[in-house]
Nucleic acid binder design. Structure first.
Lengths: 195, 195
DNA sequence: TTTTATTGATTGATCAGTCAATCAAAAATA
DNA sequence: TATTTTTGATTGACTGATCAATCAATAAAA
């Protein structure tokens, strides 16, 4: 069975398994055994490749934020006007796989972890900054810089807030409604400036 | 040393200690020992009064949400007009003790816990509903019901989102700026309807 | 004396992390 | 080509630490 070149395959499998298990469990207090089992390998192998549970979790955050970033980049490239690019950023934030309850649960767990893990925090800060700067950059084409910064803060907060509220699964808001609410925030603010 | 009537004193001390330790630690993976130590009693006593760690944590959520509720009720009573009441709800949400990094960290941990603990989730859902309904009730006096519901969703999301972003402690937003952003959201939306 | 408050000592379970051993593919050598 | 050596992949079994939970014992008040 052992074949050469398994490392990248196993790493990916373990990182994906970690996200799934964490999402299902809704917490980072998952065992290496559970993750390894989900990935179809022994716990020892997970340690072999990642050194520690903490490192595996950090890698999990990193890889998944990288994927999210790739989605945003693609969507931005397809959008032409600044206004379309703003919509693209919003759309990706709420896209199906991101907005699935397990995914939201996992992100929530990572935000909590960021209180203790400097490295986890660093990655989430980068995500937050990127979201903010994507919004600002395109807003600047539509309104003065000062307003752009303010509107971007508000929009970013609204996006994150819709996630949190979604995590409680009471009165769940649809993807479309979340997008509409955020779009509406932008439109109303931009119109208010024009008026 | 043992005096009669200590139960309520100890319960309060333990619940407060739990919130503090969880806030400092940024996670619910705190030991009963740490909490008990912080409260100045033995771990065994914590178990004596609460039965289990889980129950202590649930009580901690309940008590602290109850206090938050009391603050809101008081602030609402002092405000006269619907618009003032909206401002009161916002102000309390961001008031100093709520917006302290340790408090935010603790709430974040509880949100994560809500994924697993039905009872914790229930309390947080009640808080979310209360926030929403306080907003809707007063918005209805200022705009049509449909718009009130929508604006309330947006405002609640923005409040929760500002918390999350604050938890990352990068580019921290001041209490005043957070209040201003949320107030601005309401004002802009209400003006847009009038115009 | 009975009841309430309190703790030290202990237990049992859980887990992260380690390690020595195995297995099979690949590379080197004959 | 056949044989040997090396190396990467993999695991079962084990260890040490941590921690929630229990309990019997003590001390003070009622």
């Amino acid at each position: 069975m052992p074949k050469v070149g398994m490392e990248p395959v196993r790493r990916k499998a373990l990182v994906d398994a970690a996200m799934r298990v964490i999402g299902d469990h809704g917490s980072l207090t998952v065992t290496m055994s559970e993750i390894a089992k989900q990935a179809g390998v022994s716990p020892a192998l997970a340690h072999h490749y990642f050194g520690s549970k903490e490192q595996l979790l950090i890698e999990t955050v990193r890889v998944h934020l990288q994927r999210l970033r790739d989605s945003v980049v693609t969507a931005l490239r397809e959008a032409k006007s600044p206004r379309d690019k703003l919509s693209a950023v919003i759309r990706v934030s709420f896209q199906a796989d991101q907005f699935a309850p397990e995914t939201i649960a996992a992100w929530l767990a990572f935000y909590a972890e960021a209180q203790r893990s400097e490295e986890t925090r660093r990655f989430l800060v980068i995500y937050a900054r990127r979201l903010h700067s994507n919004l600002v950059a395109n807003l600047k084409a539509l309104c003065p810089a000062g307003d752009a910064a303010r509107i971007a803060e508000g929009a970013a907060a609204m996006i994150d807030g819709l996630y949190i509220r979604q995590s409680l699964r009471s009165a769940p808001i649809s993807t479309e409604a979340s997008i509409a609410l955020t779009e509406d925030y932008l439109t109303t603010n931009l119109n208010a400036l024009k008026g």
